[in-house]
């Protein structure tokens, strides 16, 4: 019998060898990805995950774990299972090649043209 300094534990009269059956698969439920908005006007950003049996409890746990101390004004939860993600191995799909300058602001050098025109025409 455990003789604890903690009165709450002493009252429980627990045995030291209170072996229990191991937790089985799904005991801790599936996971939800948590997105929170820090203040109105901001994007919701990914904060982490929670384990929960349903969306309502996922929201509750998300608030406890990620919305403590006024860090959030709004929270979304999405089942991990419902998220489709790109692969880090395919990161090259995000690479921009020099030929794609036409879609960058820096790809348009009007001042060069203006200066050339001014010089040639003595404007």
């Amino acid at each position: 019998m455990i003789n604890s300094l903690d009165p709450r534990i002493a009252r429980e009269k627990i045995n030291e060898d209170n072996n229990i059956a191991p937790l089985t698969e799904m005991d801790q439920f599936e996971t939800y990805e948590v997105f929170h908005q820090k203040k109105r006007g901001d994007q919701h950003v990914h904060a982490g995950i929670v384990h929960a049996p349903n969306a309502e409890m996922a929201l509750l746990f998300a608030k406890e774990q990620y919305g403590r101390r006024g860090l959030s004004v709004n929270i979304w939860v999405v089942k991990t299972n419902n998220v489709f993600a790109s692969d880090y191995d395919d990161a090259d799909i995000f690479e921009t090649v020099p030929e794609k300058q036409y879609r960058e602001a820096g790809g348009y050098k009007v001042m060069d043209k203006i200066n050339k025109y001014k010089k040639e025409n003595k404007v």
Partner: peptide
């Protein structure tokens, strides 16, 4: 119907 998958991040 719950099914566990490894979380993303």
């Amino acid at each position: 119907d719950e099914k566990y998958v490894t979380p993303l991040a």
